[in-house]
């Protein structure tokens, strides 16, 4: 176990900062999908490594929480290991790799395959919170577009996909409409995960460190992926099951096995893959 530091405040951030972030989160929960600006702090890791997610986690974590951190679905990548160690050290909380045991899950680019339950909180690290940014560089204008629900351009993006590739080629950060009101960037999760956001019993919080924005999807909220009537939203599918656990309903990563270029498709969610294998082994 890690030794708890006493020179820092609990969970690294000072209490004033945590209150400020919590106020932002309350507002975000009250208006699902709306981006709330917050006074993002400098964190002891570079932008792009999850500074937004860490600040949200620091603001909501308590001594009794059990923390899980995943990066691209895996608990054992550098980023996940570092963040987990960070909170073990600064907050002294218990950590886990088991989805069902966690009360807080900080994630980069995935939603766990195991269904989340009421009471759990999923915290997303977000690089670019503004779904309209690709077409409109001015923040004043994008805010106005959100305020007035001027979302025609979102479909322009999907239109361009179909015109170019014959289908909607956007496969991650696929835009969604939250609670029938705000269009939201779900962070760069694969569109495979989009349906999991809809009516999820867990609270979903989003933190963008560089852009200093918070947003949220409260439990049991409608989250609909944008599409066309004649080109409906579809998730990715694979021809073969997971090469390790045999699962046919999870998101698979392609792994190159040797110098001859042998490829293996395996679950990106390491915890889920482990459970499936244990179950198969009986």
């Amino acid at each position: 176990m890690h030794e708890t530091l006493t020179d820092y405040n609990f969970a690294y951030l000072d209490e004033q900062t945590k209150r400020m972030i919590r106020r932002g989160l309350l507002k975000a929960v009250a208006v699902p999908g709306l981006q709330i600006p917050f006074g993002g702090r400098e964190m002891p890791l570079p932008y792009g490594w999850g500074t937004g997610g860490i600040q949200v986690t620091a603001a909501v974590i308590g001594p009794d929480d059990v923390l899980k951190v995943i990066d691209q679905g895996a608990d054992d990548t550098t980023n996940a290991v570092s963040i987990r160690a960070f909170f073990a050290k600064t907050a002294g909380v218990a950590t886990t790799e088991v989805t069902t045991e966690a009360t807080l899950i900080q994630t980069r680019h995935r939603i766990p395959e195991t269904a989340l339950t009421s009471g759990q909180i999923l915290i997303y690290q977000v690089p670019i919170p503004e779904p309209l940014r690709f077409i409109e560089p001015r923040e004043t204008e994008t805010r106005k577009m959100h305020a007035l629900s001027e979302y025609g351009v979102m479909h322009v993006k999907l239109y361009e996909d179909i015109a170019q590739f014959g289908q909607i080629a956007t496969s991650y950060a696929y835009p969604v409409l939250v609670n029938g009101r705000y269009v939201m960037d779900p962070s760069p999760i694969p569109k495979f995960d989009n349906p999991k956001m809809h009516q999820n019993p867990a609270l979903q919080l989003f933190g963008a460190g560089r852009e200093k924005r918070l947003y949220a999807v409260p439990p049991y909220t409608d989250v609909v992926s944008l599409d066309f009537e004649d080109h409906p939203f579809e998730v990715q599918s694979w021809d073969s099951p997971c090469g390790l656990c045999g699962s046919t309903d999870s998101f698979l990563d392609e792994v190159v096995m040797d110098d001859a270029g042998t490829r293996l498709f395996i679950c990106s969610d390491t915890d889920y893959c482990r459970i499936q294998r244990e179950r198969a082994d009986g």
Partner: peptide, 13 residues
């Protein structure tokens, strides 16, 4: 197409 999509057109064809 943008204006059409802006007023709710959702049929690509």
């Amino acid at each position: 197409g943008e204006r059409l999509m802006g007023v709710g057109a959702r049929h690509y064809g």
